[in-house]
């Protein structure tokens, strides 16, 4: 399997880690941990937004910030950002095929105000107005997003679907 990447744009600026953790827990019933090179110097990072972590980790590829949950593969914050302070990639190296965590992180970002836009469009230096015309609407009631729900309430059949 290859590397999956999903690009997000936050018009109001990137979310705080604490808000991401709260939204993730609401969606999945699970706790997500966030690891960043910034932890070396700071104990409390939850109130910093993701942009802070991305900036601090820039140039440290092996120390890219990442999210971790149970024994799922980590989901990384990509270093590419267009535009610089409002967008980032979530990346997932699918060595194992269980994509529940990755999709739950995507849903979380959408729930905390992010919008997604098509991967092949590069919008470096574009204005908000220009980017907004490419944003895809988030429709949480549609089948794809309805599948991402509380982990403990899902049957084995439903969990296994994420290995398909």
């Amino acid at each position: 399997m290859g590397i999956f990447a999903h690009q997000f744009y936050f018009k109001q600026g990137l979310p705080k880690v604490a808000d991401i953790k709260k939204a993730f827990h609401h969606i999945t019933g699970l706790d997500v941990q966030f690891y960043s090179i910034v932890h070396i110097n700071e104990l409390m990072t939850d109130e910093k937004d993701l942009l802070y972590h991305i900036r601090e980790s820039r140039g440290n590829v092996i120390h890219a910030p990442y999210f971790s949950c149970l024994n799922f593969n980590h989901v990384y914050l990509g270093k590419y950002m267009h535009p610089g302070d409002k967008a980032f990639y979530l990346e997932y190296g699918g060595r194992k095929s269980n994509k529940y965590f990755y999709h739950a992180m995507i849903k979380t970002m959408l729930e905390v105000g992010g919008a997604t836009y098509t991967n092949h469009i590069h919008l470096e230096n574009e204005t908000d107005e220009c980017i907004e015309q490419f944003l895809e609407p988030y429709r949480p009631h549609t089948p794809f997003w309805m599948r991402i729900r509380t982990w403990d309430e899902m049957s084995d059949f439903e969990k296994e679907r994420f290995n398909q």
């Binding site: 309805m146 729900r149 049957s155 059949f157 439903e158 679907r161």
Partner: peptide, 8 residues
């Protein structure tokens, strides 16, 4: 059915 398979 939901418990054994899925809500869908």
């Amino acid at each position: 059915v939901e418990k054994e398979y899925s809500s869908e």
